[in-house]
Amino acid sequence: MAVHSSNRDTDSEFDHSSSQPRLYNPYKDLQVPYRNFQLPTSPEFLFDEEARRQRRSWGENLTFYTGCGYLAGAVGGASTGLVSGVKSFESGDTMKLRINRILNSSGHSGRLWGNRLGVIGLLYAGLESGIEAVRDTDDVWNCVAAGLGTGALYRAARGVRSAAVAGAVGGVVVGLAVTGKQMLKRKSML
């Protein structure tokens, strides 16, 4: 094993913005001759197609949107459950009974809203990835079409009118979100 001496302190963090390679020393705390290993500065991929892609895969999208939807729904539902639990207090309730009402109400509402928004995230991720695969392009229209489809599918069991209204709402909401994201991106570039 070759010993490489360096003018740098091996315990300090390296500046990633410079053109210097990232070095890793697995033996830095041991009193043995060591060698610094050069780490890659960019992600490594098995296939060239993965390296050229600039967005998340369908599985990553599925996990991201479903998880974010469930988390947002659980937090929002727990908040509404907290309010309804506090409103259901009666004058003769003990503190233990009041806490129990709040916890039961928050847990019930959190589960309901979390599951609903998680399913919406699941539908949206699947539709967006499917539309992108069919059209073979990545643009704003994929997101809007996925929003339309998600709203329509989510309310399809309640009838055609309800599905159409929910589809329109889903498309508008996603369109506004994408437009807002584009505006923020442009503003941060200036």
Rank of each mutant, 00 (worst) to 15 (best):
S19R: 10
Q20H: 11
P21I: 02
R22L: 15
Y27F: 13
K28Y: 08
K28S: 08
D29F: 10
Q31K: 12
V32N: 04
P33C: 07
Y34A: 13
Y34N: 14
R35L: 14
R35Y: 14
N36D: 15
N36L: 10
L39Y: 02
T41K: 15
T41W: 11
S42P: 05
S42I: 11
P43G: 08
F45P: 04
L46K: 12
D48K: 15
E49M: 09
A51W: 09
R52S: 11
R55M: 09
R55S: 15
R56E: 12
S57K: 03
W58H: 10
L62G: 07
L62F: 05
L62D: 02
T63M: 12
T63P: 05
Y65Q: 00
L71I: 06
A72S: 12
G73V: 01
A74D: 04
V75S: 03
V75F: 07
G77L: 01
T80D: 07
T80V: 14
G81P: 03
G85H: 01
G85N: 01
K87H: 08
S88V: 03
S88L: 06
F89C: 00
G92D: 15
D93G: 02
T94C: 04
M95P: 09
N100G: 09
R101H: 09
N104L: 13
S105Q: 05
S105D: 05
H108R: 15
S109Y: 10
R111E: 12
R111N: 12
L112R: 11
W113F: 14
N115R: 14
R116V: 14
G118W: 00
G118F: 00
V119N: 01
V119E: 04
V119T: 06
G121K: 02
G121C: 00
L122E: 01
L123S: 00
Y124Q: 05
S129F: 01
G130Y: 06
I131K: 02
I131T: 02
V134L: 12
D136R: 15
D136A: 14
D139G: 11
V140D: 09
V140H: 09
